[in-house]
């Protein structure tokens, strides 16, 4: 298999091309800009269209048009730009269109900063835009996973006719690692709903999210919720290490890498520690929380967002602690060890 040293942002771009991406629109913002730059250079060769749009709003609406035309489409941005896309994402969900959206998170609120963060967790997993909806949200923690999850994201989006988000952060986007490159076998999805022209052979197709009659709006909403129920049953992904440990760490993305280092240190200090790493943060991997752990420690690069989902899953069976870091610095092994000792001693 071909191996290449790549930045995380580039790995997403390369994987997307190999997954059959034919339309990309985006707007420059740090720390994801290598992604559009890579596509600007390489997409045309594969017969795709790259557009630097006038704004993130325009970019997501171009993706709406392209997805509605039945081709694989993607946009990417970082936190402030993802906020701008929210109305468009809601329309894409309401019109049941597949697409992939990448958020290489930076700190907020406001213009925030360009350093890594996980503070868009709520926005990504609870909806983000208006209306009752969900996106499947994949949380990679290596450059290889940036690649692998992007390949999967397009299939999941097509399967459910729903946007899929890749939730990364500034470190994952910028860091370089060796990646195994491969081209997936292309699965065929039914896109008879797409607006490709009737050629007078069928009734017109309409891509739309307007349901002015309450009954019709209710029907759409029920259909979406039924779809999310199936997704929640079938698409949970999680990595679990030491499931029988006394204390379970819970972490996603870049922090989970630090957490894995903690496991070794903890062992050498006779602490029984395991890790639950959600690979999908929506659907949240509820099945992973059926453990006999005496305590949980959720670690995140924010003020405590995923920890709310952990508490819902643990449901009072054990204490759920939290350790967070805001502003763009990453938690260290020492930070986490200190907190673990405190919990173990308590």
């Amino acid at each position: 298999m071909e191996q290449k040293l790549m930045k995380g942002n580039e790995a997403i771009a390369e994987a997307a091309i190999r997954a059959g991406l034919k339309f990309y629109a985006g707007y420059p913002i740090t720390p994801q800009t290598e992604l559009p730059e890579y596509l600007a250079k390489h997409m045309e060769k594969s017969g795709g269209t790259f557009i630097q749009a006038e704004s993130e709003i325009s970019a997501i609406n171009m993706v709406y048009g392209a997805a509605g035309a039945g081709i694989r489409a993607m946009t990417s941005s970082s936190s402030p730009g993802i906020s701008l896309k929210q109305e468009g994402i809601s329309y894409i969900v309401g019109s049941e269109l597949p697409c992939v959206i990448v958020n290489v998170m930076r700190t907020g609120p406001g213009l925030g900063g360009i350093h890594p963060s996980q503070s868009d967790y709520f926005q990504a997993v609870k909806g983000g835009g208006h209306g009752d909806y969900k996106m499947l949200v994949l949380a990679p923690n290596s450059v290889q996973e940036m690649y692998d999850f992007t390949i999967d994201a397009f299939d999941i989006a097509d399967k459910y006719r729903n946007p899929v988000m890749i939730l990364a952060d500034g470190i994952l986007g910028q860091m370089m690692e060796a990646v195994n490159l491969y081209t997936p076998a292309t699965e065929k999805f039914d896109k008879s709903w797409a607006t490709t022209g009737t050629y007078k052979k069928r009734k017109h197709n309409i891509i739309n999210s307007l349901y002015i009659k309450p009954e019709e709006s209710e029907t759409l909403n029920k259909r979406l919720q039924a779809k999310y129920k199936i997704m929640a049953q079938n698409e949970q992904r999680v990595e679990i290490i030491n499931p029988d440990a006394d204390i379970m760490l819970v972490a996603f993305g870049i922090v989970a890498r630090v957490a894995k280092q903690v496991l070794d240190d903890a062992k050498s200090q006779n602490l029984s520690v395991g890790l639950i790493r959600p690979l999908t943060v929506w659907p949240f991997p509820s099945k992973a929380f059926k453990t006999a752990a005496k305590a949980y420690l959720t670690i995140e690069l924010n003020s405590g967002q995923m920890v709310e989902d952990v508490r819902l899953e643990v449901n009072g069976r054990a204490p759920v602690h939290f350790l967070g870091k805001m502003g763009g610095k990453v938690l260290t092994v020492d930070d986490i060890m200190a907190k673990l000792k405190q919990i173990a001693g308590a």
Partner: peptide
């Protein structure tokens, strides 16, 4: 065939199509 665009964004949607 028709698509319905969000307020103001029809030229972007048309571009995508």
């Amino acid at each position: 065939d028709m698509q319905q665009a969000s307020h103001g964004r029809a030229p972007a949607v048309a571009t995508g199509v």
